[in-house]
Every structure is written in C-alpha cells, then in structure tokens.
Design a protein around this nucleic acid. Structure first.
Lengths: 121, 121
DNA sequence: ATAACACTTGAAGTGTACTTTAAGTCAAGT
DNA sequence: ACTTGACTTAAAGTACACTTCAAGTGTTAT
C-alpha cells in the first residue's frame, strides 16, 4: 500500500504518517523502486493501534517507548504490559471525568430549557 | 479568597488563574487594597465549571466564547445552550473512543497474560 | 530598616503534536 | 521536451495551553 492509500484509509495525513515513522511509532516502512513507501500488513496493524491510542490522547512519547520495546522482542513483555496497564488507569480516570462533565452539562441544559419554557408562558 | 487560597483549593496554579482571567474565562476578579485579587463566590463557581470542562479538553477558546455570552446576559441563552449541546456531542464521541480503547487494551493485556502462563508451564 | 515573601504586570519561553516549507527526485501525460 | 503531480528529506513554523521570567510594589517578621 502506498502512503496515499494508507492516508486515505486511516484518515491520517501523509505528513503525519511520515512523522510517526520518524518518531519510531511505526516502521521502518519498506521502500520500493522509487524510494517510495510500501506499507505492509504489520505497518497497518501498528497504525491502527496507534490511531486508537492517540484518539484517547496517549502521548507520542509513551507509544514510542512501547513500540521500541515491541521491536526488541519477547524479553520486554513485562514492561509492555505495565505500560498498557498504566494506560488503562489513565482511561478510567478520563471516563470518570467525562461522566462527571456529562452529568453537569445535562443538568445545565435542563436549566436552560426550564428558563425558556418559563419565558413562553 | 486570595489567589493563593483559590489556587490551593482547586489545584490550579496562580499563574493559570491569572491566565484564565486574562483570557476572559473568569472575572474580572475584584482587587483589594494592595491591588491583590479577592475572589468572590461567582468567581469560584466559574472556576469550578471551567476546571470541569478543561478536564475533558474543552478548548479555552470555546469556554471564552461561552463566558462572554454569559456576561452579556439572558439574550444569549440560546447560543449558550447550543455550545453546551455541541460539547455534549464531543463528550459522547470521547466516551466512545475511550470504551473502544479500553476494550482493546483489556484484550491485549489478556494476551500478554496468556503468553506468560505459557512460558511458566 | 532591611530582608524575605507574596503579590502585580506584560512578555517571552516551553512542550506536545503536528504542519508547512524548501529543495530536490522520479514517472506519466500531452 | 516539458510540465504536472506524487513522492522524498530535513528543518522551520504553527497552535494550544500554559509556565516562567523580569521588573517592580507592598506587607510582614526580626
């Protein structure tokens, strides 16, 4: 797959894909005849994982650490698991914040609706 | 309440409090004899709301818009409600992303555990 | 009274995550 | 032959949300 195809498939700009590779989040991606990137299955899996983790604001630096460990093979299983578990904690905190904020907004919107119905009567 | 007390109460640095005020997210806060800030009840309510919204990454610019409308009085009720409703949509998207990521991490961690138990047998 | 400390201001600096630019290579279309 | 378009690189630029700095004023403790 070319960078353009990957870009379109995952909704990441070509620049972002090259940036992720340079930072070591993916790749290195194999280059074809014209020195152009040819993304392989494994690259795509990594990209999907990264996209998912970035959607919840896992920092680039942590993903980088994780991917470096991954590249180092099975001896790093424990460290990798630890990173994932930490990330899970972060997710639970975020879920909590979101639920609190949602509650608050729903109440506030309810109040606005009451204000309005008052006016119209 | 002094800026120091507010800072400690809400876990926001004094600089951040002044920054929020400068950006128009709160205040203007009344100044006492020594040109020092004296936070009032309303300021505290605003700070709490802002803290909650910032915890879920509502952008400063949107909060600013919202707070400006608020300061303009009841004629802006509809616009304010719209902002809150948009923010609610954003929250639901984030909740979705988080749940997906959580699922994925739980599965991945499970796999790591399986790898480990394989090794130990 | 003279440090030590808390505050004030505006402006410059920082970290994160991209994004854009500049300068170049390569292949296809007219 | 030549332009158009997609790609390559490294480096500089941008946006956001603070954070730190520099320079100054005022209050409190010894």
């Amino acid at each position: 797959m070319t960078i353009k195809e990957v870009s379109e498939k995952y909704g990441l700009s070509k620049d972002t894909l090259r940036y992720y590779e340079k930072e070591g989040l993916i790749g290195p991606v194999a280059k074809g005849k014209n020195n152009q990137r040819e993304y392989q299955e494994e690259n795509l899996n990594q990209i999907e994982f990264i996209k998912c983790m970035r959607s919840i604001n896992m920092p680039i630096a942590k993903l980088k650490t994780y991917m470096n460990l991954y590249a180092q093979g099975p001896s790093t299983l424990d460290s990798r698991k630890e990173i994932l578990e930490n990330q899970l904690d972060a997710i639970n905190i975020q879920l909590d914040d979101l639920k609190k904020a949602k509650e608050r907004l729903l109440k506030k919107i309810e109040l606005y609706n009451q204000e309005k119905s008052k006016k119209s009567h």
